Simulated scan of single mutants.
Amino acid sequence: MSSGDVDGIVLSLPIADRMRAMLFYREVFGFEALGEPAEDGVPEPLQFEIGRRTRLMLIPSGGFGWVLGEGREVAPTKSHEVLLSLTVGAPRAVDDVIGRARRAGGEIVAEPQRQPWGYTGVCADPDGHLWQVIVAAAATS
């Protein structure tokens, strides 16, 4: 398969509360949910376009297990196999995103700081999913 055969990528994460997750992603990253709101005021499915061919879908934990198939368990809370990275253009943007995450109730895992690979900070959303916000070293020189 070549990259030309791929229509897009959807990253799916399990969540506990649809409204809380939607508000966090809107307030912290500026992502707007796609689709018409359901009865709870949140589009179903809850997803955001985060790039030209990339979407983020947030699925309630019970539904996430259903999608995985019978007999499959969702990883326990605070157990992560993925670090999602959001690349921004300047160190100030890293500080801004991490600040918004703090104000929106996210956990700050690593305060913004200069590292050999760039200026970066790490936050967790309300469900514990880790997001690294980074500007590459070459852009900070």
Rank of each mutant, 00 (worst) to 15 (best):
S2Q: 06
S2V: 07
S3R: 13
G4W: 04
V6I: 15
V6K: 09
V6T: 14
G8H: 10
G8E: 09
V10R: 11
V10T: 15
L11A: 09
S12Q: 10
S12K: 12
L13W: 01
P14H: 05
P14G: 01
A16P: 01
D17S: 13
R20P: 01
A21F: 03
M22C: 09
M22Y: 00
L23P: 03
L23W: 08
Y25I: 04
Y25G: 06
R26N: 12
R26Q: 15
E27H: 07
V28W: 04
V28H: 04
F29H: 08
G30R: 11
G30M: 11
F31L: 13
F31S: 04
E32I: 10
A33P: 03
G35I: 13
G35T: 10
E36M: 11
E36H: 05
E36G: 02
P37M: 10
P37D: 10
E39W: 01
G41F: 07
G41A: 10
V42Y: 08
P43F: 05
P43V: 10
P45V: 02
P45G: 00
P45Y: 00
P45S: 02
Q47R: 15
E49Q: 15
I50D: 01
R52V: 12
R52L: 09
R53H: 12
R55Y: 03
R55W: 08
R55F: 08
L56E: 02
L58H: 01
S61H: 05
G62R: 06
G63H: 01
G63F: 01
F64G: 00
F64D: 05
F64I: 05
G65Q: 08
G65C: 07
G65K: 06
L68F: 05
G69V: 13
G71W: 07
E73D: 15
P76Y: 09
T77E: 15
T77M: 10
T77A: 15
K78G: 08
K78N: 14
E81F: 11
E81T: 14
L84W: 02
L86Q: 10
L86E: 08
V88H: 03
V88C: 03
V88F: 04
V88K: 05
V88D: 02
A90L: 09
P91L: 11
R92F: 05
R92Y: 08
A93I: 03
V94K: 02
V97A: 03
G99N: 12
G99V: 06
R100V: 04
A101C: 14
G105E: 11
G106K: 03
E107G: 07
I108V: 15
V109K: 05
A110W: 04
A110N: 08
E111V: 12
E111A: 14
P112G: 09
P112F: 06
Q113N: 13
Q113F: 02
R114C: 06
R114I: 07
W117N: 11
Y119Q: 02
Y119F: 13
Y119H: 09
G121I: 02
V122Y: 02
V122N: 00
C123W: 01
C123P: 01
A124V: 05
A124K: 05
A124H: 06
D125W: 04
P126E: 02
D127G: 11
D127N: 14
D127Q: 10
H129Y: 12
W131Q: 06
W131Y: 14
W131P: 00
Q132H: 04
V133G: 01
I134V: 15
V135E: 00
V135L: 06
A136H: 13
A138F: 13
A139K: 10
A139I: 06
A139D: 15
A139Q: 14
T140G: 07
T140Q: 04
S141Q: 14
